[in-house]
Simulated assay, not measured.
Amino acid sequence: MWTFVVGPMICLIIAVPLAWGWGLSALDIGMAVVAYLVSGFGLTVGYHRLFTHRSFKARRGLRIALAVAGSLGVEGSPVQWVANHRRHHAFADREGDPHSPWRYGTDVRALLKGLLHAHIGWMLKRELSNRARFAPDIAADPDLRLIGQLFGPLTAVSLLAPALVGGLVTGTWTGALTGFFWAGLIRMALLHHVTWSVNSICHVAGRRPFASRDKATNFWPLALLSFGESWHNSHHADPTAARHGVLPGQLDPSARLIWVFEKLRWVHDVRWPSSERLSARLLPTPGTPNESTG
């Protein structure tokens, strides 16, 4: 676990000076973007909105594809990811939440310690959530169980496939190395820190237009990079909704992809947000829009 947590962070630190002088090509950028989109949507649409919150139902082929894509994000097997996240919602910002930034208190020092814990520390402590309690449906699914068993090989594919493509296209070891670095490690590190920021930043900084039992916030700067996941207050106010960006101007690429899947009839029974439900939870804060999208 330390390898995948600390290693990419070191790579991020050296990424800027490396890119400034050499080693970043259009091929590397293209592979990194594609890998980020595939693995990112696998996590947000698959792991999160489909498997964790059952915001929609999908055909078997799409369920398998989303589970594989999510595994390529290298954030754990489907069953463990779902168990951790359902536990987070069950105890959000209270005793039992695996990654609340308010764990140690509310003063500045305690909050800084809590942010570090929420962002990365909780994973290093290996406090795994009980799969049988929080994700029995995922553990019982034979397709997802098999994909979980293949998490190691899928991790290797996620990191080494860009190196293979880079080497084959350029015909050089340099192309393989830069492909591995940019589209493998750096892409994975960026996706990890965006995901972890939803755990940390999106429970401290931002706006809270909706009433919820916790301190989840909407943090707009992460909206595109997180594919709509940083509309976290909206999500905690209505966890099973397929769309998190429910107010005017809130971009939610994950919801748009689900909409496309629905039009293609690959998914059904989509739980789109209810205007009545959201209106009932909308807080009368000055400057907050008074209407939500349906």
Rank of each mutant, 00 (worst) to 15 (best):
L191I: 03
P101M: 08
S197V: 02
W173N: 06
A135I: 01
S200L: 02
E127I: 08
R187W: 09
P153N: 12
H232Q: 02
L164K: 12
F219A: 07
L115N: 06
F151A: 07
S226H: 02
A132I: 01
R133T: 13
P153I: 11
N199T: 05
G114V: 07
G121W: 05
I120K: 01
P153F: 10
A237Q: 03
R207T: 15
R131M: 04
G171L: 09
E229T: 00
A163R: 13
L190M: 14
A237T: 03
R213D: 14
D107R: 12
A132L: 08
D107Q: 08
L159P: 09
D238L: 15
F134A: 06
L146A: 11
L177A: 15
R103A: 08
R109H: 11
G175T: 08
T170W: 10
P136G: 06
R145P: 01
L150S: 05
L225Q: 04
S158K: 10
L168E: 02
V204P: 04
G121M: 13
R207Y: 04
D238Y: 11
H193K: 08
R208M: 13
S234F: 00
L190I: 15
L191N: 13
T155M: 10
N218K: 01
P101R: 09
L146Q: 02
P153Y: 10
Q149I: 00
H236F: 09
G114I: 11
G167V: 12
D137F: 06
F219S: 10
L116C: 10
L164R: 07
L116K: 12
E229H: 01
W196C: 07
L115Y: 06
V108H: 13
F180E: 03
T106S: 15
T170G: 11
N130A: 11
G171M: 05
G175F: 13
P162F: 12
F181C: 14
D137M: 05
L225H: 00
L160A: 15
A139T: 12
W196T: 14
H119W: 05
S212I: 03
A140W: 10
F227Q: 08
A163K: 15
S197I: 04
